[in-house]
């Protein structure tokens, strides 16, 4: 579904149904270099379970047009503007990886548009390996390869995709390869430059954080440091799962999301 916003086209996946303003809105935000399809195992399910589900492509990502936004703050301001422009009211904001930073910053800077946060693969700081950042800057295929290698738990590198016939590793790599030149570097640089500051003091809504025990990109220790600052937070664990938890453990994530979002 395409919508016009600030002179650009913003693309969403909505689970194949129209946005229903009578249902509580859930807005899902993808991570660095990715797009709406990382939520493909959740969007359609939520859309048929009492929510108005929207997985958005950030500007310059997926099928959204527009210039890339170079900082997490800019991305958060853009997202808040979008929520207001669509008159969605306070939304349940779901983020993955860089999407977590955007969700947190949106809640901190624009508390009126966020009702609850659900974060997956979250940390207060997201340093990026210099080799990865360098490869991304040069638009080398090594960048998607390294991100794919580090983003999955051991099991996902062998098997375990519950969707018959899909191969998770190439799915992730192909998604990242489809990003236009400069997109991955832009996002990774935004993540590595982000400073959370007193984010815990600024976010007022309840938060659910889901962490995978084999997450190498936002390791459980980093997630724990983030969570420690918040008072109203629920931390859920997934054993044997890596950073791409929505695709590695879609059934468990759907169940956790449904509970948290209700």
């Amino acid at each position: 579904m395409d919508l016009e916003f600030q002179g650009t086209t913003v693309n969403f996946a909505t689970g194949g149904v129209e946005i229903d303003h009578s249902q509580p809105p859930v807005l899902m935000v993808h991570g660095a270099g990715m797009d709406r399809t990382v939520w493909s195992q959740q969007t359609r399910y939520l859309a048929h379970h009492g929510f108005s589900a929207m997985a958005v492509d950030l500007p310059g990502h997926g099928d959204s047009s527009g210039e890339l936004l170079s900082t997490v703050d800019e991305m958060a301001d853009w997202l808040a503007g979008l929520i207001r422009a669509l008159d969605l009211g306070p939304v349940r904001l779901v983020g993955h990886s860089m999407g977590c930073l955007i969700a947190l910053e949106t809640a901190a800077r624009h508390g009126d548009v966020t009702e609850r946060l659900v974060l997956m693969g979250a940390a207060a700081a997201m340093p990026v390996h210099p080799d990865l950042l360098g490869a991304a800057k040069r638009n080398e295929i090594l960048a998607p390869q390294l991100m794919t290698a580090w983003a999955h738990g051991t099991r996902a590198h062998i098997a375990g995709n519950p969707t018959p016939g899909l191969w998770m590793r190439s799915g992730c790599q192909a998604l990242l390869e489809r990003a236009a030149d400069g997109v991955i570097y832009n996002d990774l640089f935004a993540c590595s430059s982000y400073e959370a500051g007193d984010i815990a003091g600024q976010v007022k809504c309840p938060i659910t954080v889901i962490v995978g025990s084999e997450d190498k990109m936002t390791p459980p220790k980093a997630t724990a440091q983030l969570v420690a600052g918040f008072s109203e937070v629920e931390l859920l664990h997934l054993e044997g799962i890596g950073h791409m938890m929505m695709l590695e453990a879609p059934d468990q994530i759907r169940e956790m999301m449904l509970k948290a979002l209700q």
Partner: peptide, 24 residues
């Protein structure tokens, strides 16, 4: 949109995996 699954667009929902999903 495909009426066979209540208006789903395979490219919109599954993006780079649209072909696999529709073929099945």
């Amino acid at each position: 949109p495909y009426d066979g699954y209540h208006g789903i667009s395979f490219a919109e929902e599954y993006g780079h995996q649209a072909l696999s999903m529709r073929a099945r």
